[in-house]
Nucleic acid binder design. Sequence first.
DNA 1: TACCCATGTCAACAATCGTTTACATGCTCG
DNA 2: CGAGCATGTAAACGATTGTTGACATGGGTA
Lengths: 217, 217
Amino acid sequence: MGKEVQESKALDGGATFADDELVRSGRDADVTRRALVRAARRRFATEGYRATTVRHIAADAGVNVALINRYFGSKEGLFEACMNRTVDELDPQTRARASSVDEVIARLLTHVVEAPNADDPLQLLLLLRSSGDENADAIRRRTLERFTEQLAAAAGWSADVPASQPLLLRAQMAIALMLGLVMLRTATEVQPLASASAEQLTEPLESVLRVLLDTRN
Amino acid sequence: MGKEVQESKALDGGATFADDELVRSGRDADVTRRALVRAARRRFATEGYRATTVRHIAADAGVNVALINRYFGSKEGLFEACMNRTVDELDPQTRARASSVDEVIARLLTHVVEAPNADDPLQLLLLLRSSGDENADAIRRRTLERFTEQLAAAAGWSADVPASQPLLLRAQMAIALMLGLVMLRTATEVQPLASASAEQLTEPLESVLRVLLDTRN
DNA sequence: TACCCATGTCAACAATCGTTTACATGCTCG
DNA sequence: CGAGCATGTAAACGATTGTTGACATGGGTA
């Protein structure tokens, strides 16, 4: 497939993405691919892998169904692409060394409840949605474990504590809390959690995360 | 030439839940119904609603597929039956008035990590699995909210504090933590959380739940 | 211009899903 | 015993799924 062409289209974004439609003016494979990935991520995250159909994804993206197989090989290929993009967007944020546990916690809360971008919490949900495919599931599992290690490392660094087994477990509990929270808020939409404001959630979450991740107590 | 417990044939390569006990000796509608519900709950909880097929459930239960529609009307009817049974088993435990917050926490941990019955954690997962049907989903949502209120009440009682909005949110965070935990342990099977022992998990979980639910601090 | 390949469209495929229908079998009771 | 209902079995149906191949079209290039 040709690849040298227009990479700089909407990647860096000043773009503030007005993207409801993401005007696919002409025929542009890259734009089509991105539109598909974005529509797919929303569907996969909110409805799960099996429940979302390729025809729905294509309709959301305003694209012909056959193009999914052309550009991603299969539905599972599209799912893998979605997860890889999630990893790419998640990794730099977690790799950046934090100066304190509070900063790590603040970053977590930013992703989960404060939601600068409406799709940010959904990215995390992808890590819970199984595709049933062993390959994609392995990626998913490994991503979660890497995420754990980075979170534990960030927490341990600030106290100069080696990432021990208990610390890994505590980091994974923090992730479990975040994932369960997003799940209940966006997928199940249980009240009053779903309609709670960020201010109502930050204070209790902060104290809980501090108990889990702060090794100084 | 009774078929006794017929093994689930290799419908897919994956692990199948052979229903070991509960031998359906003769033709007994009640036994059949129970076998179906139990097999269905395991499948629904671990693989989600859409991903589980009625043929898999029937094979697990050692029962003909058509009996699902005979006894439960439809796949969704079976799902509702599963959830109702979960509610019935969950309700008395949460209704029982606790003498202290620690007792409430101990009960939660019993359900989630100590697992006297291997299916206990899976029951909770059912509350996260959407069927896509609006009716079943409403039941699910309402069950979660009732569960929240009872948990908040149990926590508030011990300190004679009225169940306020923040307390409800904190109770729901505790539920989110539990659900995420079970999800990562049983469905995603992420390490080291999945193979962690109950002793490794109880101590951090206790302190976290105390921060969330104990109104005395 | 005329070609050519990337891109997109359309229709149909095979597989699988939930469900239904018709039939077989066993238990209960007159 | 044997009629009758409850229970279980087998096969097929229609709908939907992911996927594919043949065909249309646009835009850049020789």
